[in-house]
């Protein structure tokens, strides 16, 4: 039985302390829906390796309630990085972009099911796992068809994608599900790795301008160039140029709605480890989350980055927990010969 939201909020600090103290594998704690009311939800990374000394102080049994507020613990097995600044304010269960939604809108979770299948068969992807990313926004291709815009490494498996064949699902599945088919991979800008010893100072780096791909929407799929109504955010409309100091936001399938500030433009960044090899990028821009929050995390790749007034300024593709890197949208649209819808 859940309790009121206010009851949760009143003891949230206590819950955060007790839950993090009770289990070193817990990564996030928040208030979530519980039956018809609210409770605490914690997200635990069961794959996290924890020293025996830390486990010794952990609770023997999972906490079921704190101050009469029920607790549920979701177990995940995603990678955890040491440079997380703070647990994100929204627990995983708060992100509605992960649930199947009609019509398709910007920010939703997507997956290349055929690439995942090939990767699984090749032993490069564990059983029971899928690789997911975010639907950035919708574009019109040169042939007049409507398409999803996201990253190469989301839609096209880092150059492995098969144009015209690979099926893109929302939200994603271990096996193909026609009910989830959203689009088919149409085109991508190939990622160009540089030799391992390449450095910009040596002049031997092959610069990438974008990490981007498009997938033509399945004819019967309804879509809208908006975000989920519950987000109450301005819809993407038109494009803009990133400028230092501009306030921006993004909605992605992992961290949901986040706000940040552009801290650098024209950026050269690398080496970034992709499957084809280490890649360097130039003329990128950098965003830092506001008030010490993370702007993006694993799975947010492909999110459109918008100005506060709704112009799309970039496509998010890489980050380290503190800085996020994005391609300017004009370079993306030009490289893929498409226009924003």
């Amino acid at each position: 039985m859940g309790v009121s939201y206010q009851s949760c909020e009143d003891v949230l600090d206590t819950a955060v302390n007790e839950l993090f103290d009770s289990d070193p594998q817990i990564q996030a704690v928040g208030i979530a829906r519980h039956q018809q009311a609210f409770g605490f939800k914690a997200v635990k990374n069961a794959a996290k390796i924890v020293p025996a000394s830390a486990m010794a102080g952990a609770a023997k049994k999972p906490l079921k309630a704190i101050k009469k507020v029920p607790v549920t613990i979701d177990t995940v097995s995603s990678d955890i990085e040491a440079h997380f600044q703070v647990p994100h304010i929204q627990a995983a269960s708060f992100i509605p972009e992960r649930s199947q939604t009609t019509p398709l809108v910007c920010g939703l979770q997507i997956q290349n099911v055929d690439d995942d299948d090939r990767q699984r068969k090749a032993g490069a992807l564990g059983q029971g796992l899928i690789i997911i990313g975010t639907l950035g926004c919708f574009v019109k291709l040169a042939d007049g068809s409507n398409a999803i815009l996201s990253n190469n490494h989301v839609l096209a498996g880092e150059n492995r994608g098969i144009k015209g064949k690979d099926r893109i699902l929302h939200p994603g599945s271990l096996t193909f599900s026609s009910a989830q088919q959203a689009a088919t991979l149409t085109d991508f800008v190939a990622l160009k790795p540089s030799p391992n010893n390449a450095r910009p100072a040596k002049g031997n780096v092959v610069f990438n301008a974008v990490d981007a791909a498009v997938a033509a929407l399945t004819a019967s799929v309804a879509f809208s160039q908006t975000y989920l109504p519950s987000r109450h955010q301005v819809a993407p409309h038109g494009t803009g140029t990133p400028k230092v100091g501009d306030k921006v936001f993004k909605i992605g399938r992992t961290t949901g709605l986040t706000h940040g500030t552009i801290t650098a433009i024209g950026t050269v960044v690398g080496p970034i480890p992709y499957d084809p090899g280490n890649c360097w990028f130039n003329q990128q821009f950098e965003i830092v989350g506001d008030n010490g929050t993370m702007f993006s995390d694993h799975g947010d790749s492909g999110s459109a980055i918008l100005s506060t007034t709704g112009e799309v300024v970039g496509l998010l593709y890489a980050g380290n927990g503190t800085q996020t890197y994005a391609c300017p949208i004009q370079a993306v649209l030009s490289a893929l010969n498409c226009t924003l819808l």
Binding site: V76, S77, S78, D79, E81, H83, L125, G126, G128, L129, I130, I131, I132, G133, N151, H153, V154, E158, G172, S173, L174, T175, S177, D211, T254, V269, P271, I272, P273, Y274, S296, D297, H298, G299, D300, S301, G302, L316, Y317, A318, G319, N320, G321, T322, Q323, T324, Y325
Partner: peptide, 18 residues
Amino acid sequence: SFVRPVPIDRGTQAISPD
């Protein structure tokens, strides 16, 4: 103290078989 960025789709999601 810069941390090399990574492509941020690498997080995988565990899901139950259909």
